[in-house]
Design a protein around this nucleic acid. Structure first.
Lengths: 159, 159
DNA sequence: CAAATAATTGACTAAAATAGTCGGCTAATA
DNA sequence: TATTAGCCGACTATTTTAGTCAATTATTTG
């Protein structure tokens, strides 16, 4: 099992979509500037999220991504799975053939740990995250910074 | 955070020590043949386990490794930590400076997950593992196979 | 229609970590 | 003194991470 920036970026980006829902599609450029994630890397991640049916895309100007279903029905564990970061802590994908076709000494321990992590992350939806005080506070900070940078660009362009 | 064969090997090897306690030091060659872990790789792992005070070594013929304290006082989380596999799921080592010096959108989520995993793994001692039915069953299988391979070697050598 | 926007695709890359190997050395013991 | 077994450092192949870059396709707005 592993949890690196890949999975964290994916969850962060999905949460960004959930927070800005209802205002039409959100472009990756917006997410990139708000969450400080490389645009090209986001493209890679969203290809997987789309293939896994978690988001839908709209092309062309004003386009972007939207959640494919209600934010109460999208769980953190699904987002992490979608970008290939398995939550499985065993070395045999829970098959139990880790030691010459049979379970190794510690197989069940890793199964228990996997269950633990899976249960935790599958109990948290994007809606739950949106409702959290710490998320709302962080979101406000990020939106403010994002707005400033857009203003700056506008002024630069206008002269 | 990551949990790969490194951490799994370390816990498996420590559990092997716990299971064969009381019969003097256990050599890495024994653990290697029982648990099917490369001897050279075990040497690397035990260097770290020793530096972290989890095992003590005895050199020379009949030497090997022993647990440095009672198996009820050694917890899975300590073994994993010792071989540098952190159980921390955040990207900032729980410092909260993940986004321009402040907490990122998902910081608290990863903190909660870290706590979850840490609490689980710090609640399981080597003694707990030794007492498990599934561990005892697997251990018997491994010891039997190990004994066979030793017998085979003896017969080969004797002619 | 043209130009701009934004997703889509695929190939490539640097850096780090994993999962080892190999050889030589040191300490203890039978 | 020969053997055993831990100790140490250097080396390596493979995989993954965390991207970059260029080209293409679809959509929409002026």
């Amino acid at each position: 099992m592993r949890l690196t920036t890949k999975g964290r970026y994916a969850v962060t980006a999905m949460l960004d979509l959930a927070l800005h829902e209802g205002r039409g599609p959100i472009s990756l450029a917006d997410i990139s500037s708000r969450q400080q994630i490389s645009l090209s890397y986001l493209e890679q991640l969203f290809a997987k999220l789309r293939r896994n049916g978690l988001v839908k895309s709209v092309r062309g100007p004003g386009g972007g991504y939207q959640l494919s279903r209600n934010k109460a029905e999208i769980f953190v564990v699904q987002v992490i799975d979608a970008v290939n970061e398995s939550v499985d802590a065993t070395g045999c994908n829970s098959k139990g053939d880790c030691h010459e076709g049979e379970a190794c000494l510690t197989h069940h321990l890793w199964c228990d740990l996997s269950d633990q992590i899976h249960n935790f992350l599958s109990g948290i939806s994007l809606e739950d995250l949106v409702a959290r005080k710490d998320v709302q506070a962080a979101s406000q900070r990020l939106d403010k910074a994002h707005f400033k940078s857009i203003e700056f660009e506008r002024i630069e362009a206008t002269g």
